[in-house]
Design a protein around this nucleic acid. Structure first.
Lengths: 339, 339
DNA sequence: CTGTTAGCGCGTTCAA
DNA sequence: TTGAACGCGCTAACAG
């Protein structure tokens, strides 16, 4: 760095504090305002964020701590969140800890020492005491997709229960009763909630639940494939499958292809996904999108709210559900079209 | 922030500068070392990054400026880059400007005022003069996937020409001669290079190029679908299609499904993609992955290199090609497996 | 090796 | 409104 506020003051022939006031939007004498503005432009001055942050204890910077940026979930969420923060003049520091509590703790301390104005984070499983340092410094904490309510300012999560309910209800309304559900690891909140939503709606519609049709796996395509084979090996076969996850749904469709199951004549598929679900084969699929845009919006709202309150409020919990969308489909080009 | 270096000094009964030296890894008298360490632990002290950065003109922070985090390309690249930077103790500030030159300029100035130690950026089309402010401050600039060589420290890009060459050569070796190529907008470097690589290999193998088989579109599934229809409307049909992009390849496969083209009996498909290409239908596809890991590695290497050189070196250009991989496939579960 | 001193660049008193 | 002074927390230069 070279040109400082001092240079601008000298160039404009005013005191440093006058320039400071001007730069912060304060009112200055007309005459000085002009001189300062011209000096700023001439020298190409822009205030040093570090010095400013140091002095004001405000950096207009937030941290985001996640496991990693694989899959589309975090990529899309970050995209929305970044846009949201941009509107209110905040920048984002990205920290991927890869599930390492140690690394997470280091990042948390780093962000604290950077004096970020807030931290968004997705807790590692049940753990989150690695956030103690920023918590003690009273940096607003926003938990994303946490399993339980931690001691944070706010918490935003997908309401999988409601989504599962709606999605399965959708199948029921279409006449299905033999509905299987396949989920990932039973330790995951998303899977637990999907199962709960499934149970609820089946109860509400007085449909008997077949335990063999509630399968747990791994949220991978391979797992989905395997579960389909397992379902189709049994005597009683379902007419619809609810996959809690995009990748599993891919496995389901792949299995359908290999087992020569016709979708949706013999099988209907419902899925909750981060993508807008789309396949190559022309099948009818009911999809519910992850409410990523809403989640980031709510997270940002909570953050803004936290800026106004002086002290940390306890865990305001916001649960959001996505919407059911018709499967995205691409139409073959029409003949009428000129070439 | 509350506890400062001053508190630690008082607690340990030494001078501030002694603590400073200790915190920066300098050697201190054994006796003092112990006292300082205990004071640090007792008070939970950690140095303020802002003050430190302000003083040393070094923040251990870099900026990354891209258009947006849609698609898997940037998501994956960021993931690799973050990991790479993490190793050398750097944090990443993410800035998405959405192709707005104005916003990009603001971000560039912001990062400069943040005194980042370097900026990675993907230039907006041919423009990039919005990077003038950081350039004047001699902040190392690393351009990613730029179309031409700007005035930067380093430039890393995918070598699409080589990838296209290899991929098409692969088809030729398998006996194909009637090979079509479909790409996105002709203004894109990636598309231009794909076409060039295609031309080169066809020339090298003395195969006549049919102009009607070189189609430009939009890097979307819809576009791929449409192009396939166009190809199949003609008299002469290709036996292989090289899609420059994952989405277009999806369109091709969808079209194949609708036009009842059997892949790979009637048609072979080659594709350059960011994902590891995988489809639902069990078709043989040759895919070449984007060299995202290498790109981020090289970008980080250039950055590290720039830290040693005092002044900015001019545009070292690194071109990297990905590798051809067999299509990822998932096997159906074996019967031998116990259930 | 230690302590004192002088800033890094800025915002914020206070008096004028 | 303005300008001089001081301090944010830290490091670097110097003297002891």
């Amino acid at each position: 760095m070279e040109i400082t506020i001092k240079d601008v003051a000298k160039e404009a022939g005013v005191a440093i504090s006058t320039v400071s006031k001007y730069m912060s939007g304060g009112s200055v004498r007309q005459e000085n305002e002009v001189r300062i503005r011209e000096a700023v432009k001439k020298l190409g001055y822009s205030p040093n964020s570090l010095a400013r942050g140091l002095k004001r204890s405000k950096t207009f910077t937030v941290g985001l701590m996640i496991e990693a940026m694989d899959g589309p979930y975090w990529a899309k969420l970050i995209n929305y969140l970044e846009a949201e923060l941009q509107k209110i003049g905040y920048a984002l520091i990205l920290c991927c800890h890869g599930k390492s509590v140690e690394l997470a703790r280091e990042y948390a301390e780093y962000l604290t020492s950077q004096m970020v104005d807030g931290i968004f984070f997705a807790p590692i499983q049940e753990e989150e005491d690695y956030m103690n340092v920023p918590r003690e410094k009273e940096i607003p904490l926003i938990a994303l997709e946490a399993a339980k309510g931690f001691e944070v300012y706010g918490l935003v999560q997908t309401n999988y229960t409601a989504m599962a309910y709606e999605l399965v209800e959708n199948l029921i309304i279409k006449g299905h009763e033999k509905i299987a559900v396949i989920g990932g690891a039973p330790s995951l909140r998303s899977v637990q909630e999907c199962m709960r939503g499934y149970m609820h709606v089946m109860e509400d519609y007085d449909i008997e639940v077949c335990r063999e049709w509630m399968l747990y796996g791994e949220n991978t395509r391979e797992s989905g494939l395997e579960m389909m084979y397992r379902l189709w090996q049994a005597e009683k076969k379902p007419t619809a499958v609810f996959a809690a996850n995009y990748y599993m749904a891919m496995g389901v469709l792949r299995a359908a292809s290999e087992l020569h199951i016709v979708v949706p004549d013999e099988l209907s598929l419902a899925v909750i996904d981060d993508y807008v679900f789309s396949t190559l084969v022309p099948v009818k699929v009911t999809a519910a999108t992850q409410p990523l845009e809403k989640i980031s919006h709510e997270a940002c709202r909570l953050f803004r709210e936290s800026l106004e309150h002086p002290k940390q409020k306890r865990a305001e919990k916001v649960r959001i559900k996505g919407e059911i969308v018709p499967r995205e489909s691409i139409a073959p080009p029409r003949d009428e079209e000129e070439e």
